[in-house]
Design a protein around this nucleic acid. Structure first.
Length: 414
RNA sequence: GGAGGGGUGGCAGAGCGGUCGAAUGCGGCGGUCUCGAAAACCGUUAUCCGUCGUUAGGCGGAUCGAGGGUUCAAAUCCCUCCCCCUCCGCCA
C-alpha cells in the first residue's frame, strides 16, 4: 500500500512514477475515491460529535438525538461504501518504481548491469538436465506426472543429495552473515497474501485450500514478511534466511518451459528477508545482491545481473535485480535468483513499524532475495557436465552431503 | 474430534450498559534528592484518521481479538468468525 497522504500531497510525482507500471489510471481513481471519502468522513464526524453526551439524556435531547440519527444513518452507509472503495483501490495501486528502475514493460526491457564469467565451451554437445538425468533416473518427470500431474517431479538418488546439500550450504553461508535461520509455515492466511502484495493482483497464481481459508505460499517471502505483522520492531535491521517449499500454479505459463524441472508447481528455496529503516533499504538491497552473487560465484556458475524494468516488477517491488545463470542446455541465461526492494509497500499493508529517534512511529522497509532454488541445481548439472555424462560437483557442496561427482558409477535407478 | 476457560494500553490486570481511551501495579520518559548512583517522592507515558497551525500543538472522529446486531448510549448485552489456554480422544 502506498502512503496515501504523501500521494495526496504530491499527486503528479506519484502519477508519473505509477504510469511506468501502467497504473496511472487506478491512481487517479484512488485520488477521486479519497476526495469522496474525506468529504463524507467529515460530515459523519460532525454529526457524531453532536450525539456525544454524558449520562442519561433528557426527553428533549432524546428527540434531538433521534433526529440526528435519522440524518446520520444514510451518511454512514455512504461512508462505508466510500471507505470500501478507497480500500479496494489502495489494495490495487502498486508500489511506485524507484528512480533507477528502467522504463519498459517486458523482460527484454531489463538493463544488464554486469556479466560475470564465461559460458563454458564443450568439445561435445552439452545435454540439458533432463537428458543428463535420463541414464540415472535422477529427475523423474513421468512418475511426478503420474502421482501429481504435469510440472511435478521426483528428484532421485545423488541429485536429491546434491539438491539438499545446496540448500544446507546456502543456509549456512547466509546464517554466517548474520541472518537468523528459519523454517516457516507455507500454508498462510489471506492476510499474509494481501500483506505481501500478492493478493489481490496475482490471486490466480496460488493454490488455495478453501476448507481452511488457507493458501500455499509461492515463496517464503510471504510467511517471513508476515512474521512481524502488526509489530513495532526494535533492533533494525532484522535479517532472516529461510528454507521452504514454494507452490505456484503457473497459471498463464502453459507451454512455457515445459521440459524438465525448470518450471514446476512445487520447488524448494532458500530465501533471505530483511526488515530495515527506510534510509537503509537501498544499501540493504545491494547487500542482498552481493550475497547472491557470492553464492553463484562460489558455485562457479557464469551469470549476469539484470535491473528489471518498471512494468515487469510486480505490485510490491520498487526495484528488482535478477541474476541469470548460463544454462548450457538452453544456450542462454535464465533467472536463478531475484532480489527486490519493496520499500514500505508491504510494511504498510502488514502494519510493521519502528520508532524513530524522534519518537515517531514509521513503517519499516522490507526486502527479499533468493539465495538458491532448484534452478541452481539444474545449472550445476548442466554447467559442470562431462562428455561421459558425469557431473563435477562444486567442492563446497560436498561438505554438506553432496557426492563429489555425480554419475560416475552409472547405476541407473529403477 | 469432544468438554471447559479466556482474548482490555509496552507488560500484568481491574472494569461487565452512560460520568471509560479505560482503575491499579510494573516497565519507559522527565524532574526532585545525591559527589554520583540506587531507593524514595512528584509529574508524564496508546494508536489511527480528518481538520486547523510554519513548529509546539489545538479541535473533531475512530479504536478494549475481527465483523455484524440490540440500545438514545456497548469494553460491558446478543450472534458469527478468528486466536490462545486447560482436560479427554486421535496422530507425525
Amino acid at each position: 500500500m502506498i502512503d496515501l497522504r504523501a500521494a495526496r500531497n504530491d499527486p503528479d510525482a506519484y502519477r508519473a512514477a505509477l504510469a511506468r507500471k501502467g497504473a496511472a489510471g487506478v491512481f487517479d481513481e484512488l485520488l477521486a475515491a479519497d476526495a469522496r471519502w474525506r468529504e463524507v468522513q467529515q460530515q459523519v464526524d460532525e454529526l457524531r460529535a453532536r450525539t456525544k453526551l454524558k449520562g442519561k439524556p433528557t426527553p428533549e435531547q432524546l428527540t434531538e438525538l433521534t433526529a440526528i440519527k435519522a440524518e446520520l444513518q444514510p451518511l454512514e452507509a455512504d461512508l462505508a461504501e466510500a471507505s470500501q472503495r478507497l480500500q479496494d483501490l489502495l489494495d490495487r495501486v502498486p508500489n511506485p518504481p524507484a528512480e533507477d528502475t528502467p522504463d519498459g514493460n517486458a523482460e527484454e526491457d531489463a538493463v544488464e548491469v554486469k556479466v560475470v564469467g564465461e559460458p563454458p565451451s564443450f568439445d561435445f554437445e552439452p545435454r540439458d538436465h533432463l537428458d543428463l538425468s535420463a541414464a540415472h533416473g535422477w529427475i523423474d518427470v513421468e512418475r511426478g506426472a503420474k502421482v501429481s500431474g504435469s510440472r511435478f517431479v521426483y528428484r532421485v538418488g545423488d541429485v536429491a543429495l546434491l539438491e539438499i546439500a545446496l540448500y544446507r550450504w546456502a543456509l549456512a553461508r547466509i546464517a554466517q552473515k548474520g541472518h537468523t535461520p528459519m523454517l516457516p509455515p507455507v500454508l498462510v492466511r489471506d492476510e499474509a497474501m494481501y500483506g505481501t502484495g500478492f493478493f489481490p493482483s496475482d490471486k490466480g497464481d496460488f493454490y488455495e485450500v478453501p476448507e481452511d481459508g488457507l493458501y500455499l505460499a509461492g515463496t517464503s517471502e510471504v510467511p517471513l514478511a508476515a512474521f512481524h505483522g502488526g509489530e513495532e520492531l526494535d533492533g533494525l535491521p532484522l535479517r532472516y534466511v529461510a528454507f521452504s517449499t514454494c507452490f505456484r500454479r503457473e497459471a498463464g505459463a502453459a507451454g512455457k518451459d515445459t521440459r524438465g524441472m525448470f518450471r514446476v508447481h512445487q520447488f524448494d528455496k532458500v530465501e533471505m528477508f530483511v526488515f530495515c529503516e527506510p534510509g537503509r533499504s537501498r544499501e540493504e538491497h545491494e547487500r542482498l545482491l552481493d550475497i547472491e552473487e557470492e553464492l553463484v560465484q562460489e558455485l562457479g556458475l557464469p551469470y549476469r545481473v539484470l535491473n528489471i524494468a518498471a512494468g515487469d516488477l510486480g505490485a510490491s517491488a520498487a526495484k528488482k535485480y535478477d541474476i541469470e545463470a548460463w544454462f548450457p542446455g538452453q544456450s542462454r541465461y535464465r533467472e536463478i535468483t531475484s532480489t527486490s526492494n519493496t520499500t514500505d509497500y508491504q510494511s504498510r499493508r502488514l502494519g510493521i513499524r519502528y520508532r524513530q529517534d524522534d519518537g515517531k512511529l514509521e513503517h519499516v522497509h522490507t526486502l527479499n532475495g533468493t539465495a538458491v532454488t532448484a534452478r541452481a541445481m539444474i545449472a550445476v548439472l548442466e554447467n559442470f557436465q562431462d562428455a561421459d555424462g558425469s557431473i563435477a560437483v562444486p567442492e563446497p557442496l560436498t561438505e554438506f552431503g553432496a557426492p563429489a561427482r555425480l554419475g560416475a558409477d552409472r547405476v541407473p535407478a529403477q
